[in-house]
Design a protein around this nucleic acid. Structure first.
Length: 653
DNA sequence: CTAGGGTTAG
């Protein structure tokens, strides 16, 4: 019955893919390829890639001097001499690195070492986190004037990793050579150090908990470019730092850098004010924001479009919609509201505070004024309508957007896709997916999420499953709720292996998993007779599974599972605290009697039992005795008598 | 060369 859904689903799947030769990476490969075939193909591809990648590595592992350059004639001698000096320096490098008394080692060997040799040692100390030695060596290098730009760069970099930005700044300011101060490597190192150190929760600053937000490359790029131009290093670097803090909601750090730069005698420019203002927007701190704008005005700077728009953002985030509206009017009068940005800020804020009607009227007002839109406002309104449950209106707006504009990115496509999915416009959903494919816009986490939810709603569970597989392959981690509902549906349509695959995807991701999850998949695996997988689930999560489910699993496994694993299963469930009952022992014994060539396993089971406090009951005992010729009468008699003694001892207690 | 906007979430 329920399998008909799968057929429908495959049909739809065909419809979906037939229209074009598809590069759309989201659409699962045609149903003739089973998931496991695809997996092995992927594995083969991966293996091929690996071997390609590894080959040059093998070459590299050969001794470089013998296979690489082979100088001819007189060059050989020169190289030999060079090598000789290099060899002795190399030995000295090692000795300094390994010496327990760094100072005396430097006194003895420092003289023969070149700056680049000392840099090697410096980097070695840094990589080994030998901060004490690192500072000591750097000190020595400074004092003996054996120092290069590369030394500064490395040292500052390691001050970043050892979470000492203050020291890094101190060193940077102590550089005597002006040209070194604008050296691109040194500046990048310093910036990296500072940026890294702003990623710490301000309250936890001294506890050094790293957070990753991927902003470093931008900062490095900025710093690289600005160094080539050699302009106003400090001021601009502070600008970058403030921007980084602001966009990471690091209000306090932004504040402290702002103060620090003032302390150092730099007067903040409009960029610095703007970034700090933006930092205040994250918690809607309008009091501080207004103070800052006042401060800025009294320093002689006139608020420009960016400042006023950012202030609007502060008001919106603070939920001050009266002030926001007034400011928008002001922006408009000043000619600063010619594009949609300030309207977007307000609309989004209104809608997210449940004021959908007001958001709509701002949107209409904006359209009446013929304000230029790049599609952002549509994106905001369509998703707001979806959030508010106004799916028809969302769909109409999506259609309006498609009719009016021809500019797409992954966000607007996700937004309209969501609108069409919520209203169940199958044709429009497919058209949007095709559009994504044609425009070579690759689906992201949200695209997958929207589609999987849609396929589930349409009861196209296999399609939902294939989409989730794709999602997983692309490295996105699906949400637990989505996985759990899909797993239950796959179980119901008897797609047991697929359900288990979804379970495995979630398990391999870093997401948390609710306790009930393991038991849910266990029931599905038992129903699908996938008992080996069920065994793995039980083995790994026995303490999270109820005794009732363990019992169900155990009796299924002992009855129908791999006979070679029955004893292992017994040990695992016993080990988890489950008390094995007589029924289960009887079942196991019956399996072994039916397959006498597994007699060793029966013997092992019977020998294992007394140690765990188990003995067979009389009916199982009789069954064994009746068949003892299959197993060796003598041995059986011995084992059973031992069990009998254990039983007596247990009763006596 | 440093500043401001949107997509999920039952």
């Amino acid at each position: 019955m329920e399998l008909s859904t799968v057929t429908t689903c495959t049909g739809f799947h065909h419809n979906l893919t037939r229209s074009k030769a598809l590069s759309f990476p989201l659409i699962p490969s045609v149903s003739t390829t089973s998931s496991c075939q695809r997996t092995s193909a992927a594995a083969a591809a991966a293996a091929a890639t690996t071997s390609l990648v590894n080959e040059p590595c093998n070459d590299d592992s050969q001794p470089a001097t013998t296979t690489r350059r082979r100088p001819k004639g007189g060059a050989v001698d020169a190289q030999r001499r060079q090598s000789k000096s290099y060899m002795s320096r190399k030995a000295a490098i090692l000795e300094v690195q390994q010496s327990p008394h760094l100072d005396s080692a430097l006194q003895r060997l420092g003289g023969m070492l070149k700056v680049q040799d000392l840099n090697i040692i410096l980097r070695n100390f840094g990589e080994q986190c030998r901060w004490q030695d690192l500072s000591q060596l750097f000190d020595w290098m400074q004092r003996h004037n054996k120092i290069s730009a590369s030394s500064y760069s490395s040292y500052i970099k390691f001050m970043g990793t050892s979470l000492n930005p203050a020291k890094a700044l101190e060193i940077y300011h102590s550089i005597p050579d002006e040209s070194k101060k604008t050296n691109v490597f040194i500046c990048n190192s310093l910036l990296r150090c500072l940026v890294r150190n702003t990623k710490f929760d301000s309250s936890m600053k001294f506890f050094h908990k790293m957070k990753n937000n991927g902003l470093t490359p931008d900062a490095i790029t900025y710093s690289t470019e600005l160094n080539y131009n050699g302009l106003q290093m400090d001021s601009i670097m502070y600008g970058t730092l403030l921007a980084v803090c602001a966009s990471n909601n690091r209000c306090e750090e932004a504040q402290s850098y702002f103060n620090q730069m003032k302390d150092e005698g730099h007067s903040p420019n409009i960029f610095h004010y703007s970034s700090l203002l933006n930092a205040y927007s994250s918690d809607g701190n309008y009091k501080k924001a207004e103070e800052l704008v006042q401060d800025m005005k009294s320093s002689g700077l006139v608020p420009n479009k960016v400042i006023l728009t950012t202030l609007l953002k502060v008001y919106v985030r603070g939920g001050l919609f009266e002030k926001s509206r007034d400011l928008l009017v002001e922006l408009d009068t000043l000619g600063f509201a010619k594009n949609e940005m300030p309207y977007c800020l307000l609309m989004d804020g209104l809608a997210k505070n449940g004021l959908l009607d007001e958001a709509r009227s701002v949107f209409n007002e904006m359209k009446e004024k013929r304000v230029k839109s790049g599609g952002y406002s549509y994106s905001i309104m369509i998703s707001s309508f979806c959030r508010g449950g106004l799916f028809e209106e969302a769909k109409e707006l999506a259609e309006e957007f498609e009719a009016k504009y021809d500019k797409y990115d992954v966000v607007i496509l996700n937004t309209i896709l969501c609108a069409y999915c919520r209203t169940g416009e199958k044709e429009s959903v497919m058209r949007t997916m095709r559009k994504m494919d044609e425009l070579a816009i690759s689906p992201d986490y949200n695209t997958f999420h929207i589609l999987i939810k849609y396929f589930c709603k349409e009861k196209l569970y296999m399609l939902a499953y294939q989409t989730m597989e794709d999602m997983h392959r692309k490295g996105h981690q699906p949400m637990e709720e989505l996985c759990s509902s899909l797993i239950l549906h796959l179980g119901k349509i008897k797609a047991h292996a697929e359900a288990f695959s979804v379970y495995s995807m979630l398990k391999s991701s870093k997401r948390t998993m609710s306790k009930a999850f393991h038991e849910d998949i266990l029931h599905i695996l038992i129903a699908g007779r996938l008992l080996k997988d069920a065994y793995v689930v039980v083995k790994d999560n026995a303490e999270l599974i109820s005794p009732a489910a363990i019992k169900k699993f155990a009796s299924s496994f002992v009855k129908l599972g791999d006979i070679n694993l029955i004893n292992d299963v017994m040990k695992v469930i016993h080990g988890s605290g489950y008390k094995i009952d007589q029924e289960l022992f009887l079942m196991a014994v019956s399996r072994y009697i039916a397959e006498p060539e597994k007699k060793d396993l029966l013997i092992q089971l019977l020998q294992w039992m007394p140690g765990q406090g188990y003995v067979v009951d009389s009916s199982t005992r009789n069954l064994i005795l009746k068949n003892s010729h299959l197993f060796g009468r003598q041995l059986i008699a011995e084992i059973l008598s031992k069990q009998h003694m254990t039983s007596k001892a247990l009763k006596a207690q």
